[in-house]
Amino acid sequence: MYAQEVKSTGLVVKPLDEMSDEERAFQVRIDAGEKIEPKDWMPDGYRKNLVRQISQHGHSEVVGQLPEGNWITRAPTLERKAILLAKVQDEAGHGLYLYSAAETLGVSRADLIDDLLSGKAKYSSIFNYPTLNWADMGAVGWLVDGAAIVNQVALQRTSYGPYSRAMVRICKEESFHARQGFDIMMKMTSGTAAQKAMAQDALNRLWWPALMMFGPPDADSVHSAQSMAWKIKIMTNDEGRQKFVDQTMPQIEYLGLEVPDSTAKLNPETGHYDFSDPDWAEFFEVLKGNGPCNVDRLRARNIAHDKGAWFRDGLMAYAEKRKIAAE
């Protein structure tokens, strides 16, 4: 899963000769493909932007448990239930790596979680859409994890060492997730009429939100130049979206499904698929909190946190008692 870049640094890229010595040395290292490590000097903007991006990514993994968790108790076979459990467990694990990567930048996980729970921090808009039939478990793996992989594979080359290393590990698991999603879709599209209808319904609902995962069109996100220069962002939103459509359209055809975009077709001149824009007005409404599930997702996380306070406090108190006893 991946948190889309919506608002970047807002900074304009300085030419090398206008930078301070420290800034210039930093940029030279990045240009040379070196990794930046936690104790290295870094510009404030770089640090802040990374904290936001990594924590949004972590929050997406954590909230991303909910739409799939919605079907764990209704998985149709023991094998499907086991696979889905393993997948959601992976997502929670990704959340942990990412929070840990963010902590190397001097923030605390508790503060990051408070920002998520208060609604201050964002997570990927995709998780504010509901999962309404079993084929959604296929479509989420295939489309949502598929879209995430496009971004995350690129992010393995990101300049910040801990983030890059987390991505390497996460990508391995995500490709398993996408494959299991496609496997569910194959089973559904080769199944009964009702199963085919579920598969088409899932594609119809999740296609546009999946395209939105790459963020607004490049023309509307002019601030990403600094993130690109710092190699926090590796490809533009439109590049990622095109790559995703190019890899997914043949799969849709293979499955015998119809993409809910009558303009989507291979352009023989460019070798890429043409396709329509998603409804960006809807995208910005979801970001503002008006998606179909924003309120429910945040409510679920807040309830889990509040009702779990006694558990966390109990463990801390025990640890404190042991510490005192040892002294």
Binding site: V62, Q65, A300, R312
Partner: peptide
């Protein structure tokens, strides 16, 4: 499995 995504802390979800 009913707890999925609703545990008191991420480590417990896992």
């Amino acid at each position: 499995s009913e707890w999925c995504g609703h545990a008191p802390v991420l480590e417990e979800d896992i």
